[in-house]
């Protein structure tokens, strides 16, 4: 097992999680490859995201629109903004071709907004491109444990 790579990738993902929990969206947007995709599928087994309906399938433009909406104060479902705390763990390197690394981990996310705390658990799969001594995100897939159920609205970036 390549512990150094595992540490390296998990440090990057922990940092991304911390940015999202603390609303550091410009920094979060800067982590991405221009052609990168942020995906939250409905069926956790789905692989053809482009040709199926997802909860989110954001290219660069949609990611920046999503971020703008969260901070705009124009949306009653995100103001007040939900608070989130997520922990990421159980990191595993699924593939490494020297250029890109595929990492899977578990995410436990608690959300609190207006008297209600909710809990979303997900498998995250990242495709990371090596970029100097760090990475850029080529793809992030958030497979919610209960994605195939009727959800409640999600006013943040899981």
């Amino acid at each position: 097992m390549n512990i150094e790579l595992l540490n390296h990738a998990s440090a990057f993902i922990c940092q991304e999680a911390d940015m999202l929990d603390h609303g550091e969206y410009p920094e979060w947007l800067a982590l991405w490859e221009e052609k990168g995709l942020y995906i939250v599928p409905i069926n956790p087994d789905e692989t053809d995201f482009a040709n199926t309906l997802n909860y989110a399938c954001d290219d660069a433009k949609m990611r920046s629109l999503r971020v703008a909406r969260l901070g705009s104060g124009e949306s009653i479902s995100t103001s007040p903004a939900p608070r989130t705390i997520r922990s990421v763990s159980r990191f595993r390197i699924l593939a490494d071709d020297g250029k890109t690394v595929t990492v899977r981990c578990a995410q436990n996310l608690r959300e609190f907004r207006k008297e209600i705390q909710k809990h979303y658990t997900a498998n995250l799969t990242y495709t990371l491109v090596r970029d100097g001594d760090s990475f850029r995100i080529q793809q992030k897939v958030v497979r919610l444990l209960n994605a195939s159920d009727a959800l409640q609205c999600i006013g943040y970036i899981p």
């Binding site: 939250v40 949609m62 629109l65 999503r66 909406r69 995100t78």
Partner: peptide
């Protein structure tokens, strides 16, 4: 599909509001 995702659903820009 992308139009639907943009407005509808729990992560859309319309439905949650």
């Amino acid at each position: 599909l992308r139009m639907h995702e943009h407005f509808q659903g729990p992560m859309g820009f319309g439905t949650p509001d």
